[in-house]
Amino acid sequence: MRELRYREAVREAIAEEMEADESVFLMGEEVGHYQGAYKVSEGLLARFGEKRVIDTPIAEAGFAGIGIGAAMTGLRPVIEFMTWNFSFVAFDQIISNAAKIRQMSGGTIDVPIVFRGPNGAAKQVASQHSHSVDPFYTNIPGIFVVMPATPRDAKGLLKTAIRCNDPVVFLEGETLYNVKGEVPDEGEEELIPFGKGRIGREGTDCTIVAFGRPYYETMQAAEKLAEDGIECEVVDPRTLRPLDLDLLVESVKKTHRCVVVHEHWPYGGPGAEIVDQIQRHAFDWLDAPIERVGSLDVPMPYASNLENFVLPTVERITDAVRKVTYSEKK
């Protein structure tokens, strides 16, 4: 194993898949000459040339559509949204076209396409640039939704996504690109399957389900709680559609308590979906209602004091765990 940054892990996955398969190409704003707005695609233009690393004008609906058409006819596009906030102008292409084509065509046409880019709030970029888009895309049958928290998961899942014959929404973390983590050595190929979660930390007292950016706040919260003798099991589902229900249920059956942590707004979304599934499949094992911690129910304000107040914090996670374990703050 070696250490890579999240952005390098994503880059490696793209490069390896491009190396292996001529039909894979990368398209998006500033992915080539500029080396990527977040430097994810740095060096790829020099390596693969302008035919396969393609800069587009600002035209998300256009290049999402180009990608879908190319995928229908045999290519494997990797379409980068500079951030997922800008996918909204291409939403129609994803929901009405990419997700529908296969069934509409009676199963005759595959759409092997990956839409990827950074998701979620960054730092003080205000309401129009701070969306965690997972609730919008997880509602749609016909696409996979992947949201890796670690470099290793990002690499292994992106490779799976590029080889997948269906549309994949791949949500990276704008604030995670600098995170370092272990990734298998070069030459040791790892493909992480969709629908398989990962235990981030073992524990017996409470399950915390966390994905994306607040996975890290959750791990910190778990360490803090351990100091008070509360051992949390942190489970990262990694793919939000499909969910690894077996892993979640198995953990809850062990701990009897559960908190779900997410960056998205509280109304609905994968956070609520996870709670619903767990309560239906592990009702008899639960000793407390499941709690959720997410962003507050407001558009993201600019001011840093308020942004920090809106995003899920370590303190709100520890509070939620204390609530479901009926334990006082020490």
Binding site: A126, P301, Y302
Partner: peptide
């Protein structure tokens, strides 16, 4: 507004872009 203050043109909600 740029400083994220209540006295800003958008009361600190919008920042530079808004």
């Amino acid at each position: 507004e740029l400083f994220g203050k209540d006295t800003g043109v958008s009361r600190g909600m919008g920042g530079s872009m808004h």
